[in-house]
C-alpha cells in the first residue's frame, strides 16, 4: 500500500510505492515509466492562484480499484466558467479523477473513494447526496459518442423529461398540460449551443444513430446541456473523431466556457494548450504532478517530468 506523507520541514509531499522500501528522505518514487526522470513532487507545483470562486474543490482524493491505488491524494481547485484540461499518459488516473466529480465511479463496484470533493462548497461524498440532482448540475460527455437509439429531439429532451421537468406523455396531452412547445424550444436551444442546429434542424425526428460521429458527439454535448448543468465533464470527447469534427468540438468547448465550468480530459497536448485556461498534469501512478495556468504549464513547467512529458520524451 502506498501512502502520502507530509514532511514537516519543507512542506513537500513524497509519494512512495512501498512504505518500508523507501524512507522519507528518499526523493525518488519507484513507479516510473521508462524514460521518466525521477524526482519528488512538490506541493507548490499544484497550487494554482486564480481570481473568483472555485466551482469544484478536491482535496486528498484517493481512489482504489480493488487493490489498485488509482489516484493518490489529489487536491485541486477548479475555477468557475473556465476550461480545465487534464492531461497525462494512459493509465495515469485522469479519467478516474473526472468520473469522481459527478460520482460516476459509484457505478463501478470495485471502486472505493476516499477524500473530499466539494461543489460550490457542498461536499458531494457524504450521506444523503441526491445523485440525480448532482448529475443534473454536473453533466458528462463520454469518449465515444453514445446517443440513444431514439430520434434527435428525443435524445435532447430525454433528461428533462425523465426528471419530470417536461411532460409530453399521453396523459399530459389529454389534459392539455403538455410541454410540447417547451420541448421544441429546449431542443433548438441545446442544439444551437452545441453548434448542431443548422445541420439537423430538418431531421429532428430521425434516428440519432444516422448522424456522423462528430455530429453524434455534438448531440451528446447538446443532450448534456439540455439538463442545464453548471459543470460539464468531458472524457476525451474528440479522440474518436477526425480533425474537422475535432476542431468543431474545440470551438464549442471554447464558447461553452463563458457559461459553464468545463473540465476536459485529453490525450492531445496541443488540444489542451489550445482550448484550456488551466492545465493539470497527471503522471504515472495516479498523482497530480503539476497544475497551473496553461501557458505556464506548457512553456515553463516546474517539474522536470512534466517538461519531459510535454516535450514528448515519454508517455
Amino acid at each position: 500500500m502506498s501512502e502520502t506523507r507530509q514532511t514537516a520541514d519543507d512542506g513537500q509531499t513524497t509519494t512512495d510505492s512501498e512504505p518500508d522500501g523507501v524512507s522519507a528522505g528518499t526523493d525518488q518514487p519507484l513507479e516510473v515509466t521508462s524514460g521518466e526522470t525521477r524526482e519528488r513532487t512538490r506541493d507548490a507545483w499544484v497550487e494554482h492562484e486564480f481570481e473568483g470562486d472555485a466551482k469544484l474543490s478536491v482535496s486528498d482524493l484517493d481512489v482504489y480499484y480493488g487493490d489498485d491505488h488509482a489516484l493518490k491524494g489529489v487536491s485541486m481547485e477548479i475555477p468557475e466558467n473556465s476550461v480545465t484540461a487534464l492531461i497525462g499518459p494512459s493509465g495515469c488516473g485522469k479519467s478516474t479523477f473526472l468520473r469522481c466529480l459527478n460520482r460516476m465511479n459509484d457505478r463501478i463496484k470495485a471502486a472505493s473513494i476516499d477524500g473530499s470533493v466539494r461543489l460550490e462548497g457542498e461536499e458531494i461524498y457524504q450521506e444523503g447526496v441526491n445523485l440525480v440532482e448532482l448529475r443534473k448540475r454536473v453533466g458528462m460527455v463520454f469518449q465515444s459518442p453514445n446517443p440513444f437509439p431514439k430520434s434527435i429531439a428525443d435524445n435532447i429532451s430525454y433528461g428533462p423529461r425523465k426528471h419530470g421537468d417536461l411532460d409530453t406523455g399521453l396523459l399530459a396531452n389529454l389534459l392539455g398540460r403538455s410541454d410540447d412547445d417547451a420541448v421544441d424550444e429546449l431542443v433548438e436551444r441545446s442544439l444551437r449551443q452545441a453548434a448542431l442546429w443548422d445541420e439537423v434542424q430538418d431531421r429532428l425526428d430521425d434516428n440519432a444513430l444516422g448522424l456522423s460521429g462528430g455530429q453524434q458527439q455534438r448531440l451528446c454535448i447538446a443532450r448534456a446541456l439540455a439538463t442545464d448543468p453548471e459543470v460539464l465533464l468531458m472524457d476525451e470527447p474528440a479522440s474518436a473523431l477526425d480533425p474537422i469534427a475535432t476542431s468543431k468540438i474545440e470551438d464549442l468547448v471554447h464558447d461553452l466556457a463563458e457559461d459553464y465550468t468545463v473540465v476536459i480530459v485529453t490525450h492531445n497536448m496541443q488540444q489542451a494548450a489550445r482550448i484550456s485556461d488551466q492545465t493539470a498534469v497527471f503522471l504515472t501512478g495516479g498523482e497530480l504532478v503539476e497544475y497551473g495556468d496553461t501557458d505556464q504549464v506548457f512553456e515553463d513547467p516546474q517539474s522536470q517530468r512534466v517538461e519531459d512529458y510535454i516535450s514528448g520524451k515519454f508517455g
Partner: peptide
C-alpha cells in the same frame, strides 16, 4: 451496450427510468 446506461446515469436519470426508457 453499457454506454447507454452510463449516458443515462450521467444525465441524472434513475435506474428504473433508464431500464424503462
Amino acid at each position: 451496450p453499457d454506454e447507454y446506461r452510463d449516458a443515462s446515469a450521467a444525465l441524472g436519470v434513475t435506474k428504473w427510468q433508464t431500464i424503462r426508457s
